[in-house]
């Protein structure tokens, strides 16, 4: 008797798997790391290393303790670590970075069931928790020559005094801000890579950035500065496109992006925080199940019951 494998079709699969998608995200994040290393110095690497190591270790230990299959190899914890690090100032104490990473993985991701099950973006939620817990260190922006440097957003909102950096410096990232968010060029490069590799679709970033542009233009702000400053590009390309916590239909992604854009501008212009990207994404994360339900696809030839 032949011992053939009998299984349901299809018997052919595309090569892309979860790990290869996450690897693509890591590759897309690389230019920002290089830019940040050049701008802020080698401490960048230390912070990123601590975050990534803590995230991976927490996931490993959690799965070990709860006797679940180990998923560290899918690289998603690694992505969370990098994203969280990118959202921290370079001078962050390492223990705080590690604490944030543990919160991201254990509380936000694993306790909700692990990859694909969490409703909120782990890196963003952890960042918000850190912002509230360690408001001092989380808002101290240091620049290469250890001079405190206000972020363009603080300058735009009038919360800090000083001169706005030039547009060239904004593009290159030569201004105050979190590790991975300052270099617009590096982030755009990474975003383009994600689009080309079809890891993400254009819907969320275009809707997000477009909304911010139009809304700030209408409000008489400086739209180009608004887009290039803060975590907008990082958020639009890398965090508002997170699979598990955003809608999976294209129309849903458009709504998600527009919502993020609106909330971001509202907070930036009228809120007491200079930055609103994290809050906007978290808020929209919470709305995601409802957006998903509203934007269900219409089956081909389906007849209403």
């Amino acid at each position: 008797m032949a011992n053939f494998i009998v299984s349901v079709s299809p018997h052919l699969r595309e090569k892309t798997d979860t790990a290869s998608i996450m690897r693509d995200v890591l590759i897309a994040l690389a230019p920002a790391l290089i830019a940040s290393f050049i701008i802020f110095g080698e401490r960048v690497l230390l912070v990123v290393a601590v975050c990534v190591a803590t995230c991976c270790l927490c996931e490993y230990l959690f799965e070990k303790i709860t006797k679940k299959p180990c998923t560290v190899r899918d690289c998603s914890a690694c992505v969370t670590g990098v994203l969280l690090a990118y959202n921290l100032p370079v001078g962050i104490p390492l223990w705080q970075a590690a604490f944030g990473s543990a919160v991201a993985i254990v509380v936000v991701k694993m306790l909700f069931g692990g990859i694909g099950q969490n409703f909120a973006n782990p890196a963003i939620t952890a960042r918000i928790i850190m912002l509230l817990a360690f408001s001092g260190t989380m808002t101290t922006w240091t620049f290469p020559d250890t001079v405190s440097s206000a972020t363009p957003l603080a300058l735009l909102s009038g919360q800090a005094q000083g001169e706005l950096p030039s547009l060239t410096n904004m593009l290159l990232g030569l201004h105050g801000g979190c590790i991975g968010e300052t270099s617009a060029i590096a982030l755009l490069l990474g975003g383009a890579y994600l689009l080309i590799r079809r890891v993400i679709t254009w819907h969320t970033p275009v809707a997000f950035i477009g909304t911010v542009f139009v809304f700030t233009l209408l409000l008489g702000e400086q739209p180009v500065y608004q887009i290039l400053s803060g975590g907008l590009l990082l958020g639009a390309f890398f965090m508002a496109t997170d699979y598990a916590t955003t809608p999976s239909t294209n129309s849903g992604r458009l709504i998600f992006g527009i919502g993020c854009g609106l909330i971001t501008v509202l907070i930036r212009v009228w809120g007491s925080y200079p930055e609103g990207v994290s809050f906007s994404i978290l808020l929209m994360n919470i709305l995601t199940p409802h957006i998903s339900k509203l934007t269900r696809t219409k089956p081909f030839g389906g007849v209403e019951a």
């Binding site: 798997d17 979860t18 998608i21 998923t71 899918d74 998603s76 692990g114 990859i115 694909g116 099950q117 699979y243 598990a244 809608p247 999976s248 239909t249």
Partner: peptide, 8 residues
């Protein structure tokens, strides 16, 4: 097979 990542 691994967990659905809701990539769509």
């Amino acid at each position: 097979s691994t967990a659905c990542i809701r990539c769509g």
